[in-house]
Design a protein around this nucleic acid. Sequence first.
DNA 1: AATGAATGAGCTTTCATTCAT
DNA 2: GATGAATGAAAGCTCATTCAT
Lengths: 229, 229, 229, 229
Amino acid sequence: MSSARPSVMSSTATTDVEMTEADRPSRLAAGQDPAKRQQILEGANRVFSQMGFDAASMNDITREAGVSKGTIYVYFDSKEELFLELCNHFREILFADIYHALESDGDLREALIEFGVALAGVITSDVVVRAQRVVIGVAERMPSMSRDFYERGPKRGQALMRALIDRHVAAGRLDIEDTELATYQLADLFMSGMFKKRLFGCMEQPPSKELIRKTVTAGVDVFLKAYQR
Amino acid sequence: MSSARPSVMSSTATTDVEMTEADRPSRLAAGQDPAKRQQILEGANRVFSQMGFDAASMNDITREAGVSKGTIYVYFDSKEELFLELCNHFREILFADIYHALESDGDLREALIEFGVALAGVITSDVVVRAQRVVIGVAERMPSMSRDFYERGPKRGQALMRALIDRHVAAGRLDIEDTELATYQLADLFMSGMFKKRLFGCMEQPPSKELIRKTVTAGVDVFLKAYQR
Amino acid sequence: MSSARPSVMSSTATTDVEMTEADRPSRLAAGQDPAKRQQILEGANRVFSQMGFDAASMNDITREAGVSKGTIYVYFDSKEELFLELCNHFREILFADIYHALESDGDLREALIEFGVALAGVITSDVVVRAQRVVIGVAERMPSMSRDFYERGPKRGQALMRALIDRHVAAGRLDIEDTELATYQLADLFMSGMFKKRLFGCMEQPPSKELIRKTVTAGVDVFLKAYQR
Amino acid sequence: MSSARPSVMSSTATTDVEMTEADRPSRLAAGQDPAKRQQILEGANRVFSQMGFDAASMNDITREAGVSKGTIYVYFDSKEELFLELCNHFREILFADIYHALESDGDLREALIEFGVALAGVITSDVVVRAQRVVIGVAERMPSMSRDFYERGPKRGQALMRALIDRHVAAGRLDIEDTELATYQLADLFMSGMFKKRLFGCMEQPPSKELIRKTVTAGVDVFLKAYQR
DNA sequence: AATGAATGAGCTTTCATTCAT
DNA sequence: GATGAATGAAAGCTCATTCAT
């Protein structure tokens, strides 16, 4: 039913899956077929996103992924492990799209805006919002899981941004005492009025490109007015 | 075991509960005794906060609240409704402590800082963080619940802030085109580096008064540098 | 279907169960109603006896006992514990019927025969044979369970017998060097040709009173010819 | 891990298995290769002995036997049939070692002791104890299996013994009315205090040669004192 | 009106068996 | 002919909800 729903894997999964029959080994070892693994993860993603960790049942995932229960348990030891593996995928996606946006060495304002647009786009996307919800929802019972999610995800992005800001401080273009705090401020300014609304379901669709760019630009301008020398 | 844990209701609940026997009507209609209702909500709050919606069992709540299962079902139709009612309580608390902080008419910077400190303190408190986690965790399955939570909670705070800012814009002390966006920016600047960390469990203790004041002050200063005429 | 099958409890259970309604407390604490406990044990006994430990399913027991699954788990923590409790019952039965047979102080031959008849009757009974089969069947995986069963059951009987024999040795009526071994010999002689046949299912019905008495008498005579002074 | 464990087949199996490649037909019909059949039975024996019938999984047997699941199902229709075939093997072993011990024509006492030592040694051995446990454990559900096991095993030994005793009765050296019962008595006296202990796991190691000889000797002496003319 | 014992659907996970390769 | 990945029924157990007391 929810197969039309955007999935974390949808962008990358197909390349593997659509390899021609001839290319594929005729028989793969148990738990070794990446296409099947992908298929399970996609189903699991849809179900977890929709129901949360606890309310998602392995039967739901079975149905949604189109594989048998036994097969899931060959690829993943438990429901929890399946979910953890799913989170790792989220992170890959989250970063792949953002990395290169930080490499621009041109105008500071432009660079920040480009990066902000990329970051805000990812973090407010359906996929990532759902992932964050699930992880936040289990934070009380499985603190290490959500901590990991944050530390390997948002925190790493934060570190990249901070390095960029530090470079501009060193170059004398920015006047900031506490660059850590300033980085957090910038990150929040990127998504002002969007992040929480998305998380709480008050903004049902991901924000449009225009809204994102407008918000990010306004945020960057606040940031620069405050900190630019 | 978790009875020492801070509860949303703890501050207000007891007044009702401790009314002397003599004051109370000798027998109340089923589901009509507000003290018992309160008692159930307190227990439910402790359990939901600790376990999340799904992992919390009605037996846990029974034990924690000290009432029988049947009684809970007289006061609340289902686990889900009990949780919804609980959320309404969160909102009351969330606002009671913040309202008056906005009434100060003195210096703009001072007013914003005082309000920010109050707001950030509440939103990063254990109780409210847990509540937000639970609500976010079920946002996919029960969208109206989390939407309500946000709209009657954060959004209302937002509206109050915006009114204050609008007044200062009108008075010519601030130069802002889009006051809605600016308000979101200010709200996010209040809690930069704290909100997400708390939500994801990366900051285990609520931030200290000092950290809150420092963060809020820095945020207000960024805001004012950007928008003060 | 197997409700007509003799059950360990059948002899004793009914007294409790058939107490008049008036005698019974109107409501018993969870897991505290002895009649219900009995009912579960009876059902479990029938199922375990027929299927063995592993092949018996909790659903089967549920059906056979006429209680719900939840109820069983209120009375017993797990399938294994249910089975262990069942074994304790077997032991009670096993001993209750045998104790007094050892108290006779009259003629040695008569005393031994009476005791042997009681012991052989119990050990070759349907109930006890089934219990032994189940316990032996899990001896490899749950060694402590079967060891316990033997030590608190047969071994204790052995000890009682040995005390009797020791008394007669001390009185000069028997001439035995190794009374431990002699006791084992006597115990085996009581059931020669019956015990193994019953255990392996080669003797489908419990031996008749006559066969038991004949076998025991022959065994006691062999024993006395060998050891009587 | 259990490959060092003594196996019923270990003594006989290898001859078939180690036939050189050259000797073997290059391709056997499905389910027709006796070496492979042997290999499966060996693995199954190790697994069944250790786990009992129910807890043993076909995957365990697959691993232990080093053949694929499909292959097992070519040679044996089901887990149950595999187990039945295994039991037939036990019987062969049980007898091979005992036969010749009965052929001695010399002194009666010596002959009985030699036979008793051989019989008790086999029956209390790890392998045979485990086999008996498994068979007894399923006796209720598969009565014919355990009956067969007993009738073709212990019972046949019983018949051989009885023939020997009958000869001595005929020769006037023994004075026995019921030689069938006497034979059972002798068989039990051979293993007094050892058989049950082994079966219930109370004697963890097989009894030493010395203990066996001592027990058998004591048993034979009781038997002869009772029945020798 | 309040209780909590009882219910049974539904959970995660295992494993005998099949069949495409 | 042999393989082992895939299947799905069924296992032990939990818990939201009901209802006799």
